[in-house]
Design a protein around this nucleic acid. Structure first.
Lengths: 211, 211
DNA sequence: TAGATTGTTAATCGATTAACAATC
DNA sequence: TAGATTGTTAATCGATTAACAATC
């Protein structure tokens, strides 16, 4: 519940939407036309009441006695998540992680387009990965003035993260997807998602020793 | 709250521990000897009561009137998470994601050792990334018999995920870190962490449009 | 001792689940 | 109409926060 959040929807609900979306995409691909909350509950290991309640946060997508229309529900969730349009992305930091994200295939088909990556390492500048060039970080300001960049992915060493986040904010980017192992907190009008892969790995270690 | 979980600690608490650990590691590096829950609260944007309560789930690490000893608390959390020992890791699927995970630098210094990767693509088999060989998937059974493998990372296309998870379970691996966009559910004595990068990206899209 | 800060109980808040009336 | 399944309210459960006594 960020300070600026204007919707009354809890983050827990929002974080389940992509899972519904993934599931409905699969169902659609398998040719299924309808689905009930009971079936979703079974397949997704979630309580059926919770699913109906989640969906009803955004309106009545179902039909009593029938269930939900797979395609319509999927499209509705796409709209709620705002993944029904294209986003322009840049990547800051073109080390292992940054270059992996340049190649990341899950963007494909969805509306995420990596325009360029930026780094300060002369050995990387000018090279191309997955058809996308690595530019000198000093060019970022001009680049952002000339392109409508929506999302900045941070994949720098952690020492640089705060400066990069400030820079992206200044350049008017709307969202930060941060892969460095430091938390970036929400600022001004910039949305932030922190991905801490190591944290998940540590939780896995805990789990495997506490089954 | 998995069925088999024998500790009474909630998952919400466990998921905050890596954050504490990261923070304490930084403090230690900066030469700080002690820290109070009030300072942690400010730096981590968490409620101080919550922090004290979290830590007290595992014993009294603090001292009234003083606070917490940084190094001792960090070591205690390492023990709780069981990240105070080495884990042997294999990666199944050596595509973009798999190879990126072979190079992933955050293992370094921590006790995670990638022994090998496995794939079925002849073009990849026999090649080496970051000093680690990509082997034919048919060799995995023999490999696991000869090595004590703790963690299996799944980075295959989603069609293969269920079979791979079953295989890893059969081979006696203790934990699965799944990067494919399908959920693997906890099974037998195998701990599972699903990483769905795209889900986070979708949530980011939601957030940036609902600030 | 006085001040600081933990450990822990009690109060609050929010999220999940159950139940059922509405309705297709 | 009867059966099915949603939408929604009420009940439960768990997590967070506040408060303060314990104690270093």
């Amino acid at each position: 519940m960020s300070v600026e959040s204007n919707s009354g929807i809890s983050e827990a609900v929002i974080r389940r939407l992509p899972k519904y979306h993934r599931y409905l995409t699969d169902l659609e691909l398998m040719g299924e036309k309808k689905v009930s909350s009971a079936k979703m509950s079974e397949d997704l290991c979630l309580n059926a009441s919770q699913i109906r309640r989640d969906l009803n946060c955004f309106g009545g997508f179902g039909q009593q006695g029938y269930g939900y229309n797979v395609s319509k529900l999927k499209d509705a969730i796409s709209k709620i998540l705002h993944i029904d349009r294209q986003y322009n992305v840049i990547i800051i930091g073109a080390g292992n992680m940054g270059r992996a994200l340049m190649r990341y295939p899950y963007y494909k088909g969805m509306g995420f387009k990596v325009l360029a990556a930026f780094d300060s390492n002369p050995a990387l500048i000018g090279t191309t990965t997955s058809g996308c060039e690595i530019l000198d970080i000093s060019k970022i300001e001009k680049f952002c003035a000339e392109h409508e960049v929506d999302i900045g992915i941070i994949a720098t060493p952690k020492e640089a993260v705060l400066d990069v986040a400030d820079l992206l904010t200044k350049l008017g980017i709307h969202a930060i997807w941060n892969f460095a192992p430091v938390d970036v907190y929400e600022r001004d009008g910039v949305a932030v998602e922190n991905v801490h892969l190591n944290d998940g790995l540590y939780v896995l270690c805990y789990k495997m020793n506490n089954l």
